[in-house]
Write a protein that binds this DNA or RNA. Structure first.
Lengths: 204, 204
DNA sequence: AATTGTGAATTGATTCACAGCT
DNA sequence: AGCTGTGAATCAATTCACAATT
């Protein structure tokens, strides 16, 4: 597939459409127009249609899209039709919070282990916390491809190097720093302070 | 100021530059070239320069930028030269985690109160948790302009309406839903599941 | 009649190339 | 000589306008 020339933003929006479709399916809606779905997703109808046609033609003219079918297609495109194992590195405040939050499970991700330099057992968490030194081995034996990074800035790059070396291909980074990774590794960064800071520009 | 035609992404990057500058200042660096700063921020030097010139001319040709001065200028542009009060609504897993995380404080934000439909006192948090019903009054009396929203999807829009009505102008939204707000209100959404889902497209 | 799919047009962001300072 | 500031050129994303299909 020519993944290379599909805008990254389109792929990002696919995930959003997927969530909206899930909601429609819950409500037993079986067909939806680009107009309706776009509105739910907060985009323009033409943009939705263009995004979808990067991957094929899935609609019926005069009618709209079949919800069930579209869900399936997007699942396949995003490559997450089966449960994807994820590890979390850095079980401090933010890290253990995310573990407890658990909003990932129903979206097809399972955090199967967490790692920390100083692992303390955390009651009621339901997943094991190991020493970071055991991480590379764990990644290899469990063929883990995705990681959530919630270590402090100072350790972020070093941990990243280890993860990448062991086979991690995608990182959701919460450390407020730019990670240096090889081309085949993808990083999505979420910097909470930057998000807030950015907002403050817009208040008068 | 003609805020309207400055790309939102430039403003976003300003926050990133600010963090890099802070690090340089800690290390007692007093002058930095666009090349060095851009590298630290993960962008191209020309982009950094263009971003800055939306707001004025701050560099010295042949030399670079004065770190101290630039920090000050960006602070002013982002309108956060003084501590900005913020409230957090929805003290569930993610919400109380963010409160504990506290990565905001040093960036000039102070979470001064949290609200929840069922407020339980949370030990060691250092800030009060009130019932959501008291929120509008609190926003008004304390002139709060910014809010972090961590309620479940179902309640998000209703709470948002109340917040906006009471005077909130910027929202950092963690609920996985599109918020409908008037034009003068800005929303930054962070959808953790979408971020993960998006990444899974890139692993082979 | 309704709605998708898409080439063309437009708008927006990034990068280039070099003039202008220090 | 070195580095910023910026108009022009390029590249990318969005939106339009309408032909194609059911």
């Amino acid at each position: 597939m020519h993944r290379i020339d599909i805008p990254r933003k389109s792929i990002y929006r696919l995930s959003i459409y997927q969530r909206c479709l899930a909601k429609l399916r819950e409500n037993s809606v079986d067909t939806v127009s680009s107009e309706a779905l776009a509105k739910a997703a907060g985009v323009k109808p033409t943009q939705l249609r263009k995004d979808l046609t990067y991957f094929g033609q899935f609609g019926t003219r005069g009618l709209g899209y079949n919800v069930e079918a579209l869900v399936k297609i997007i699942s396949e495109v995003l490559g997450h039709n089966r449960l994807q194992p994820v590890i979390l590195v850095g079980a401090g405040n933010l890290g253990s919070a995310l573990l407890r939050y658990g909003g990932f499970r129903k979206e097809g991700f399972e955090v199967i282990a967490a790692f920390d330099l100083a692992p303390r057992p955390q009651p009621g968490l339901g997943i094991p916390i190991y020493a970071t030194s055991e991480m590379p081995q764990f990644i290899r034996t469990n063929q883990v491809k995705m990681a959530i990074l919630t270590v402090p800035t100072s350790g972020a790059q070093a941990v990243t190097n280890q993860m990448v070396e062991a086979g991690i291909q995608a990182i959701l980074n919460f450390s407020p720093t730019i990670l240096d990774v090889p081309d085949h590794v993808v990083v999505n960064s979420v910097d909470l302070a930057v998000e807030l800071e950015n907002l403050s520009y817009f208040i008068r």
